[in-house]
Write a protein that binds this DNA or RNA. Structure first.
Lengths: 159, 159
DNA sequence: TATTGTTATACTCTATAACTATA
DNA sequence: TATAGTTATAGAGTATAACAATA
């Protein structure tokens, strides 16, 4: 027999339970991702980069000459929103917008030397950030997590 | 010997490579979470709930009588932002703000019958949503993912 | 006609300062 | 003096419509 709790006046809550939400993978994902996002932002701050500008810079360094529309596709960002991101990287002279001779509507995005150097340093810093957050976890576990995340990513578009 | 590529004019990019970013767990997390978020939003739409209002409702149902500040803490939301969330749930008569006799500054949040019923239906729908996104994955793999996510969540605050 | 990059705009989410009424 | 809830506001992030130049 448990002590009956009055229905009209709920007892004072001393410890908030999130047991129901803990039953969902998405809830754990959101909380873990919040931590990653905050730590990543702090990691990139010394380089003057945000998550989006970092992603854009890495993709431009890895794919020199790609068009803005290709980058927008790869980043899952709308074209109008990419413009300001590219503006920012260009203003800092980390990348260049080069006119494409064969299609005068388009710009080819290429990294400058400074862009490639900053990119290398930022990537190294992010590696350190992940090593910190994932320390104590073994490689097989992480590999399994990546497999699950990849499956979620692709299952979403199947439906 | 690989064919040398001219440095001055980068070749046209046919397929954008995100190989560098794929080396990071956070990148996979973001992409997977985007998929989850979009599917969850669609799942909750028929119930007139968004991710935040859903989380708030579940926590109020599971912790009847909790204060707004407690809920804000649990949800990692600033108090000002919680106000409009609570307003929305109260306007739809899913929850009530009850004056606390012992502390007249505070409100105890309690679910109405309609709130508990909608919560139960929404939770069931979200279970279906997760089953869809995670189909084909076995329980041990998911358990390992949860362990990793929990570790990331707690490691973030250690530093 | 369709596409590339752009502008303007709006809507959501989130963060901070300051207020009120209590404690 | 500190706390609970609120208001106002500003900053990100994101989405859509419409335009000029070009294909």
């Amino acid at each position: 027999m448990t002590k009956p709790t009055p229905q009209s006046a709920p007892p004072v809550v001393t410890r908030v339970s999130d047991a129901t939400l803990r039953g969902f993978v998405g809830y754990h994902m959101k909380r873990a991702f919040n931590v990653i996002q905050a730590d990543l932002a702090a990691t990139l701050k010394p380089y003057g980069l945000r998550m989006v500008t970092y992603s854009a810079l890495v993709l431009i360094v890895d794919n020199p000459g790609l068009r803005q529309s290709q980058l927008a596709d790869a980043m899952d960002v709308e074209r109008p929103n990419l413009v300001v991101i590219i503006d920012e990287l260009e203003r800092r002279e980390l990348i260049l917008r080069e006119k494409v001779p064969t299609d005068r509507r388009a710009y080819a995005l290429v990294p400058t030397l400074a862009g490639r150097q900053l990119c290398a340093r930022a990537v190294a810093a992010v590696k350190g950030h992940e090593a910190r957050l994932l320390r104590g976890l073994n490689a097989p576990d992480i590999a399994r997590v990546l497999a699950v995340l990849k499956q979620i990513e692709t299952t979403g578009s199947e439906e």
